[in-house]
Amino acid sequence: MKVETNDNIASIQKVKQGNIYLEFVDEGISAGFPSPADDFKNKRISLDEELVKDKNTTYYARVSGESMIGAGLDNNDLLVIDKSITPKDGKIAVCYVDGEFTVKRLKITKECVFLMPENDNYKPIKVTKDKQLLIWGIVTYVIKKL
């Protein structure tokens, strides 16, 4: 008898006369319980899977400066941004304002939108009619190098 594996299905085939040998198989043939570990192998932890909900809507950006340190966004931190999330009051968003990209917490009131820094040395930006604001994406994770 020759035992061989074909994909995940172990099959047993008749072999030519006089030619009897066994091949090593790492799964499928077992007299007792199959190894409970088999179902879990190949599933190594992946940061991509954990941090990226949809890779087609996920983008990355780097922080330069300290206006958001109160929210845990330090200089040089890497941000994971998901564009598919709808901007809402209180979310931290990548914004394009006055010809520059920045990151701020959104404060949306009935009258207008404020871009709130999280550092007392910086002032909130009031988005008035003459200011063009583009909310580019919502920050979902911060990755820091220690």
Binding site: Y59, Y60, A61, V63, S64, G65, S67, V94, V97, D98
Partner: peptide, 17 residues
């Protein structure tokens, strides 16, 4: 290469604003 190279991703200004 904003989406295919880590060194090329956008930078967010948190210095002056």
């Amino acid at each position: 290469e904003y989406t295919t190279k880590f060194s090329d991703i956008i930078t967010l200004n948190c210095h002056t604003i």
